[in-house]
């Protein structure tokens, strides 16, 4: 079953040089290149397979693991930080 992800709407988002800071009501999160790509592309829900393809195109294969594994790790990390949330499939 496909998982869909959408970003938690930040109060403010500043993207600079491929990296970003996202400001939330109770905290801020400093995002590296992959986190920034994910936040920028999940304003509306995005399927996990689309995310994997997008990360592969943007960054190429990561060293020492598959793109799927790297994407899963990045998504889990951002969900844990409440930057992304799992979403219903859009209708």
């Amino acid at each position: 079953m496909t998982r869909w992800y959408v970003r938690t709407p930040p109060d403010d988002l500043l993207v600079e040089g491929g990296e970003a800071i996202a400001l939330y009501p109770d905290r801020f999160v400093r995002l590296g290149p992959i986190g920034t790509w994910l936040v920028v592309h999940t304003e509306t829900p995005l399927a996990e397979q689309t995310i994997v393809r997008g990360l592969d195109e943007a960054f190429g294969p990561p060293p020492g693991m598959s793109v799927d594994e790297a994407a899963a790790a990045a998504l889990a990390d951002l969900v844990a930080q409440r930057v992304l949330t799992l979403s219903e499939e859009p209708t």
Binding site: L14, E16, G17, E19, A20, I21, L23, F28, R30
Partner: peptide, 10 residues
């Protein structure tokens, strides 16, 4: 770097 400075100052 600017974003590191922001993260330190926020």
């Amino acid at each position: 770097a600017p974003l590191d400075a922001m993260a330190a100052l926020l």
